[in-house]
Design a protein around this nucleic acid. Structure first.
Length: 931
RNA sequence: GCCCAGAUGGCGGAAUUGGUAGACGCGCUGGUCUCAAACACCAGUGCCCUCACAGGCAUGCCGGUUCGACUCCGGCUCUGGGUACCA
């Protein structure tokens, strides 16, 4: 009859597994609810207390929704392809598959101890050939598709072939988008298309495919021996490992995510994700509206030497004092006269050799060179000098800008450095010194600008674009910062790209021959001549003769569609059955970390939109609502050693010495006090240490940071589940603070929720006696319960998981004070508690005589009548007047309020027998009494 | 630099639409139990003054709106996150 969490938790975890309590039904008359966690990469370190936070929150919602009558899909799986297992393989020779299996086993053990309500029959692993078969299949669909801007969606490549057969390719004027590489593609007629050989046709189509092989500047990481996507590079170094990254021109498989830029942007308005995350995606997509403007070459006769710039500020067109080209710009060579050739070549070489990281490190350093060439201003026909500067990026817009030093900060810095003139074309605010800083605001009247004079900036922009288009100097244009995503990785442990080459032409593997499984290799390193590890696979050729593509897919491939596979995970005929996908649609609640804002969460939206275009799914977005859980920080403990000695000094005495800080294991600390005997055993060099104590104790300092082995501050969930129980652990993780907030972990606090569970248990049974009875509850008992029902229900609905725990505690404290052990009160209470503390709830539910799992119980109904306050009004201020706050839910009229207020004990006290002059009832909720 | 979020006791945090600020938990103090300790239980605990009552001050800083502001408005400071020559 005592509460033994170990026995109880083991018992119910086994019960749930045996009875498949959490199995989701694929056809049900119940409404569906899909709760998804971002599946983990199974790393060797196992879980620490930060990882399960989001899983516990999603589990609470899942269990709550089941009580509410929903058919809940709550699956879990593993994102099991990835770098660490491969790095480990390189070091030890152990196959990454083996490492991954071991890690998954460990993860599963840890997860099971926490008592999640996952439907494990639906587990997926991205490295399983039965799974990646369909990742490869989707890749082939992307390869066989193009984005048709005329209907604004992706279509089969055959429809493009049909266009070419009928119209040929007339370029962008005829609204056939091609993405970044359009410049390289020459126009052709329908007749020419028909004469192209297979190779030429393949090359042309490659400019349109959504998964394509193209030459582009990529982030090359020499240390990892692979390319990386933009979101995998942070501050010029690789996100994993922190190795330097270079820009390199390479032929690579890429995803034409840019085709979806506008739709990815628009879709954000339809989903309930946090504003900060949506902003991050908006910035990453980076839409900017402006226009292109062509500056003619000096002689006016060589149109191929015209320089096209992109600007969002055509209103400043009359303020241009020079043009700037990116060092990599193709025109640099063509327009530079012999007189300036040496200087220009020297600069271009310098700029190329400057690594990305250097460039980022000293952004402020202005470098550039004059080409010696000039262009013609389209409206004034002035001679405009053409410069090269590395502040202009080759990859954005046209790789050339019109420089307006008076109204652009970067142009200003460049002009100042090289002594180029400033031309003011916008009225300045009072006291502005153009010599000191440019005026960049899009506000003010335009001056010195011919037809735009006197206009406001916004109007001038519109007018100027209009004129530019009329004169055919250029046209209105929208640019996106978003780049196509590099898709090939020179790595072993990933999905093989299902492509083979015949006569140099890439072909997709026929769908019925998938999966293309990973071949065995002798080593997981690149070959000596720099080919990816897959080149080591002996005799690995399609049909024994054609070369396979040797790169593998990036980590984000498998995770870009896994939410669909959970709907039908064992299907061998399709990636998922349409019937199932029509039922489950998309994720109702998705919980995971915000670090995926511009990676996974953008790619999964991209693939979802693509699959919808293909008519394979119905939904346009993967997740309706998304919550980013905050990080749980680790508190590390630091002891202070006196320099040059082996003396450890307690925290408050350390200022008397020169000391060195040493991180020690968090397990040795009880609060700030350190277990000295434990410390001596913990590390050899402490064995003979002397200690300078205060009050007989050694105190440590604390520091909050990431949880990491390095700081010895990792707290392991298994240990906590063992010591306090999974229910306490779950309650405490939720209790710690708002889910979305970052907060430090404090193991001490778990004792509070542990006490709460013991107290709850004592309401049911105490000193070996079962206390629950069938007596009718009293008014205050009902009130305690229904206050709890109201708050718990409302708070779960608004994802305020931490306040729910407080509400339970308050309710149990009240019932404990009332010595209430009545079934009618306790039964609804443990139903509400079961999402948070399912094991103890199941146990008590069974002891109350129920045959079925508590999961089948309905959610308690709220009876408002139990909540009525005894005193509906309370005084809120004494300031010559007396005011009452009124409970308006009673909807009393003014006379009734006046009567009740005047008879209130506090009013009598306030009046001290004096007569009332006036009672003012303010319509909302205030009553003033004037004496 | 730009964008976003935030700032409440010794600590984590409550306060749902502008209405008794500090719920709940940790920690701390005292008590009961115990030979003793741990556990458990009970009580107290924002700060200042006071034996106590009473009073004064309190939601990063300055100002405004309001009968009333943690909450709304304007201006600052600091912290965390994202992004970085994107024309």
């Amino acid at each position: 009859m005592e509460y033994h969490h170990r026995d109880i938790e083991k018992k119910w975890q086994a019960y749930w597994a045996k009875n498949k309590t959490f199995k989701a039904e694929d056809d049900s008359t119940k409404p569906k609810y899909y709760v998804l966690d971002m599946f983990p990469y199974p790393s060797g370190a196992g879980l620490h207390v930060g990882h399960p936070l989001g899983y516990i929150a999603s589990d609470v919602v899942s269990r709550y929704k089941r009580h509410r009558g929903f058919n809940v899909l709550h699956p879990m799986g593993y994102d099991s392809f990835g770098l660490p297992a491969e790095q480990y393989a390189i070091q030890t020779g152990q196959h990454p598959k083996l490492t991954t299996e071991q890690n998954i086993k460990r993860y599963r053990e840890q997860l099971d101890k926490i008592g999640f309500s996952f439907d494990w029959d639906r587990e997926v692993q991205t490295s399983d050939p039965n799974y990646y078969k369909w990742t490869q299949w989707i890749f082939i669909q992307l390869f066989n598709s193009w984005y048709n801007p005329r209907v604004n969606k992706a279509e089969k490549i055959e429809t493009l072939v049909a266009v070419f057969e009928k119209e040929g390719f007339k370029g962008n004027e005829h609204d056939i988008l091609t993405g970044d590489i359009e410049k390289e593609l020459a126009l052709f007629t329908a007749a020419e298309w028909k004469n192209f050989d297979e190779k030429k046709r393949s090359e042309v189509l490659m400019h349109f495919r959504l998964a394509y092989l193209g030459e582009a500047y990529v982030n090359w990481c020499p240390a990892l021996g692979t390319v990386l996507a933009n979101d995998e590079v942070k501050d010029g170094v690789s996100e994993r490992g922190g190795h330097p990254v270079e820009r390199k021109l390479m032929k690579q498989w890429s995803m034409r995510i840019t085709a979806y830029a506008q739709r990815l942007l628009d879709g954000l308005d339809t989903i309930d994700w946090s504003e900060s995350l949506k902003e991050a995606q908006r910035n990453w997509i980076g839409r900017s509206q402006g226009c292109s403007i062509r500056f003619k070459s000096l002689d006016g006769k060589s149109p191929e030497h015209d320089i096209e710039v992109f600007t969002t500020r055509p209103d400043t067109l009359f303020g241009v004092s020079y043009l700037t080209l990116a060092p990599e710009h193709e025109l640099v060579d063509m327009i530079t006269p012999p007189t300036h050739r040496d200087e220009v070549n020297a600069y271009v070489t310098y700029a190329k050799n400057r690594s990305e990281r250097e460039r980022m490190a000293d952004v402020k350093k202005v470098t550039g060179v004059f080409t010696g060439a000039y262009a013609i201003h389209p409206f004034t026909n002035e001679k405009i000098p053409v410069w090269i500067g590395d502040y202009v990026l080759a990859g954005y817009g046209t790789g050339a800008v019109m420089a307006v030093p008076a109204h652009d900060e970067r142009d200003h810095a460049f002009a100042k450095h090289f002594g180029l003139p400033l031309k003011q074309v916008i009225e300045l605010p009072k006291g502005w010194d153009l010599q000191k800083a440019s005026y960049d605001e899009k506000k003010g009247k335009v001056i010195n600008s011919d037809f735009m004079n006197g206009m406001e900036v916004v109007d001038a922009i519109k007018e100027c674009i209009q004129r530019i288009e009329n004169h055919k100097f250029g046209k209105g244009q929208i640019n996106f910062r978003l780049r196509d995503a590099v898709f090939g990785r020179q790595r072993y442990w990933g999905e093989p790209i299902p492509i083979y080459y015949k006569d140099g032409i890439p072909h997709a593997i026929p769908e019925n021959e998938l999966p293309l499984t990973l071949p065995e290799v002798d080593k997981y390193l690149p070959t000596p001549d720099g080919e990816p590890p897959l080149a080591r696979a002996e005799g690995w050729k399609y049909k024994g003769q054609y070369e396979y593509e040797l790169t593998t897919m990036p980590g984000w491939a498998g995770s870009s569609w896994y939410f669909l596979r959970y709907m039908d995970p064992h299907n061998t005929k399709e990636f998922a059955d349409k019937k199932h996908m029509d039922y489950w649609q998309n994720v109702d609640l998705y919980i995971g970390g915000s670090e995926h804002a511009t990676g996974h969460l953008l790619y999964v939206r991209f693939w979802t939109k693509f699959l919808k275009d293909m008519g394979l799914i119905r939904v346009d977005e993967p997740a309706k609502k998304l919550i980013n859980q905050g990080m749980i920080g680790g508190v590390s403990k630091i002891v202070h050693r006196v320099n040059g000695t082996n003396k450890i000094v307690s925290r408050n005495l350390k200022d008397n010495f020169e000391t060195t800080a040493i991180h020690v294991d968090i397990g040795l600390a009880d609060g700030d006090s350190i277990d000295i005997e434990g410390l001596k055993k913990w590390r050899d060099d402490f064995h003979n240490a002397e200690f300078i104590l205060e009050d007989g104790q050694l105190f440590a300092s604390s520091e909050i940071g990431k949880m990491s082995k390095r700081w010895y501050n990792v707290v392991n969930p298994d240990d906590l589940c063992e010591k306090f129980g999974a229910d306490s652990f779950r309650l405490y993780e939720m209790f710690l603070g708002p889910l979305t907030e970052s907060k430090p972990w404090d193991t001490k606090g778990i004792e509070g929720v542990s006490r709460f569970l013991k107290k709850l248990w004592r309401l049911f049974a105490n000193e070996g006696k079962w206390l629950v009875n069938d007596e009718e509850p009293s008014k205050p008992e009902y009130k305690a319960l229904h206050k709890c029902i109201k708050r718990v229900t409302e708070d779960i609905e608004r994802y305020s998981f931490n306040t729910v725990v407080s509400t339970f505690m308050i309710c149990v404290n009240e019932l404990s004070d009332l010595k209430c052990s009545k079934r009618k009160i306790l039964e609804p209470l443990i139903i509400m508690l079961s999402p948070y503390a399912p094991h103890i709830a199941e146990e008590l539910w069974e002891k109350l005589g129920h045959q079925h799992s508590i999961e089948t119980a309905g959610w308690p109904e709220l009876e408002e009548s139990h909540l009525v306050e005894d005193s509906f009004a309370y005084p809120i201020s004494f300031n010559g007047k007396m005011r009452f706050n009124i409970d308006m839910s009673l909807s009393l009229n003014a006379q009734e309020i006046e009567k009740i207020v005047l008879s209130h004990a506090d009013t009598q006290k306030f009046l001290e027998g004096k007569p009332v002059k006036k009672v003012i009832v303010v319509p909302r909720k205030i009553v003033n009494i004037v004496v």
